[in-house]
């Protein structure tokens, strides 16, 4: 069980790394483009919160369950974390104001 949790913590960490990277890099990029006021902070922060929230939910729901059920819950939560990350990325891109205006 420990191995399973460590493995999934690493995989969730990968998703978290991308979200933190966006949170750090996007405001600077927007500033460079002259649209520093339009940084979608709520979406960026949500992106950072999603992976740990889903990992915690999967671990909570999987308590005292067979290993297979826990693994299934963790894989589903990881897939949902990546799907939500892509959705948040698409929403951020859609909300970006047109450049040069």
């Amino acid at each position: 069980m420990i191995v399973l949790v460590v493995l999934f913590a690493l995989l969730f960490g990968l998703a978290e790394l991308a979200a933190v990277s966006n949170l750090v890099a996007l405001p600077a990029y927007y500033e460079l483009l002259g649209i520093g006021d339009a940084v979608p902070w709520a979406l960026l922060v949500a992106g950072v919160l999603v992976p740990p929230a889903l990992l915690a939910a999967a671990l909570l729901l999987g308590r005292r369950r067979p290993l297979m059920h826990r693994a299934l819950l963790l894989v589903t939560a990881l897939a949902a974390a990546h799907a939500l990350a892509l959705s948040i990325g698409a929403l951020v891109a859609a909300l970006q104001p047109p450049l040069g205006v």
Partner: peptide, 24 residues
Amino acid sequence: ISWQFGEFLAMASGVLAFGTVFSL
């Protein structure tokens, strides 16, 4: 590689979510 992995999981997310709820 990380992006492709994320995309693969996103494509599988629907099937996984349905199957998990169905079986549990």
